[in-house]
Structure formats: C-alpha cells, structure tokens
Amino acid sequence: MEEVLAPMPGNILEVIVKVGDAVKEDDELVILEAMKMENPICSPVDGTVKEIKVKAKDVVEADQLLVVIE
C-alpha cells in the first residue's frame, strides 16, 4: 500500500485518475496548484488506485493524503 501525500500546501486543480485505474510509476495522478504553478503529482509505484481522498478545487495542506495506491 502506497500513500501519496501533498508535498506542499495548495489547491487541487484536477484529479486525473479514478478508483480502480491501473497506474505505473511516474504516471500523473493529481495536478496540485502551488507556488503559482500547476504541478503533477505522480505515482511512486506501479499499482492500482485504491482510494482518492481529494477532488478538484480542494485546498490541501502539506503531507495531506491525496491518493492510495495498492
């Protein structure tokens, strides 16, 4: 089980994946708007998206859980 956390505070601009999607390492999961930039948050491992904890327009804190990969 791999938990993908927000590296810094920001706004969720887009959630690219959905629960059940198969993902590979480095696949983009979420776009986090922070520091005036749109930053892709990528999967650290190959796996399946088990849970998505955020939706577009959510404001997140640093280290907040975004996605769980199984």
């Binding site: 590296p7 810094m8 986090l32 922070a34 520091m35 930039m37 930053n39 892709p40 640093a62």
Partner: peptide
C-alpha cells in the same frame, strides 16, 4: 520544474518551486 519540498535550506518560511 516542479515543487521542491524542504528547500531552500536558508528558510523554513516557504518551499521552493
């Protein structure tokens, strides 16, 4: 490009991009 958490080393006030 992209976010660089825990950087720069000279401050804890903000993160780098």
């Amino acid at each position: 490009q992209g976010l660089i958490p825990n950087y720069p080393e000279y401050t804890n006030e903000y993160n780098a991009v």
